[in-house]
Nucleic acid binder design. Structure first.
Lengths: 205, 205
DNA sequence: CAATGTGAACAGCTTCACAGCC
DNA sequence: GGCTGTGAAGCTGTTCACATTG
């Protein structure tokens, strides 16, 4: 499929899951996998997987399946994860501390390259091998090649930090507070609110 | 709207956001809000809000808007958040530590009532006012009225813990690891994977 | 008159069935 | 024969227009 088709946002959301699955399969030494077998692992339907992958080209071999390491590599390229991506972590509180040493980022090639906080008590401390810097000093992060930020601050400070990040040239923000961030259109924000997710759970009981 | 209509899952996902907004408006002393004003705050479309709320009954007053505290209370009832809900936290590592003291749960009436871990180094330690218990001892949590659990353990242990939780009578699990949890149909799982969310961000740059 | 509640149109996503290829 | 790639059908969720009500 080479035509310019609009790729559903939901497809993009599933791509990292595919990448994780293909990466793990590769580590296990598996060379090919069918959409059916993969669907079994990820609890999706086989045609869903085929359609998703086909938006980006012809990944598979008919009668055989998808080549594990090639497909992993192509998904990395699509998601721009084929080069290690530096991210700044804002907030060195408990949540920031957890994020700083979260092992899951490594699988996607993310590298937390700088940590910032506004509290004098935390500035200068070491966290996951990095020195916590004053949040006022994040102006130069673009020069370090940092285009992503993870925002782990209380919701009162989230907008202030987001504005600082935008001014510092950040292009993507993972927001872990419940607040809506007002940013220019060129900046992409993904928000995760733990309490909100928990809030939906009881409804279904 | 009193008829039995199927309520979209996406509507349920937005309900906690409405609840948060109405709660905050109530704290500010506002008595009524229109769907338009609320839409401005939440960055949604007014008809979306009206339709969502109308699935659960006639909340508003034509010409006036929605009564803030009444609507908040009715959403709490819908989401079963009108009574304080106890939750167990599994995992007393860095992520668990962050969760244990996360202030955002209070707004929805969540109360972390017990913490479990499998590491002898952590069992017996105090965390957010609670003593970390041995994960093997979580069998009795149903008698304490705990029906929810937050799973903050490495992905290798996630399935084992989930099975323990199901056997202990837990009905809802917030899973913070990237693994798929196999549980009986009566148990509802919501999974959040930070790395996956970050993985989608770069695509849009 | 202002703002809700809602059927109907619309858009987006998923599933299906099967043609095409290895 | 087995499995991918894909148009078409089906389904779910969103937006619209407007009738309705305080």
């Amino acid at each position: 499929m080479l035509k310019f088709r609009k790729i559903p946002a939901e497809t993009i959301r599933r791509m990292p899951r595919y990448l994780r699955a293909f990466s793990l399969l590769g580590q296990e030494g598996q060379t090919y996998i069918s959409s059916q077998a993969l669907a079994g692992q990820l609890h999706l339907n086989p045609p869903q997987i085929r359609k998703d992958l086909s938006y980006f080209g012809d990944f598979g071999t008919r009668g055989v399946g998808y080549p594990v390491s090639d497909t992993a590599q192509r998904i990395r390229e699509i998601l721009k994860l084929d080069v290690a991506q530096k991210a700044a972590l804002i907030g060195a509180g408990r949540l920031g501390t957890a994020i700083a040493s979260y092992p899951g980022f490594a699988m996607f090639g993310f590298d937390i390259a700088a940590i910032f906080d506004n509290s004098p008590a935390k500035i200068g401390k070491k966290l996951a091998g990095l020195t916590v810097q004053n949040i006022q000093d994040l102006t130069g992060i673009a020069e370090q090649g940092i285009r992503l930020a993870i925002l782990a601050v209380p919701s009162e400070s989230a907008q202030t930090c987001a504005t600082l990040l935008v001014d510092a040239g950040v292009r993507g923000i993972l927001n872990l507070s419940p607040s809506w961030l007002k940013v220019p259109k060129r900046v992409k924000v993904v928000s995760i609110d733990l309490a909100m997710e928990l809030g939906t759970l009881l409804y279904y009981l």
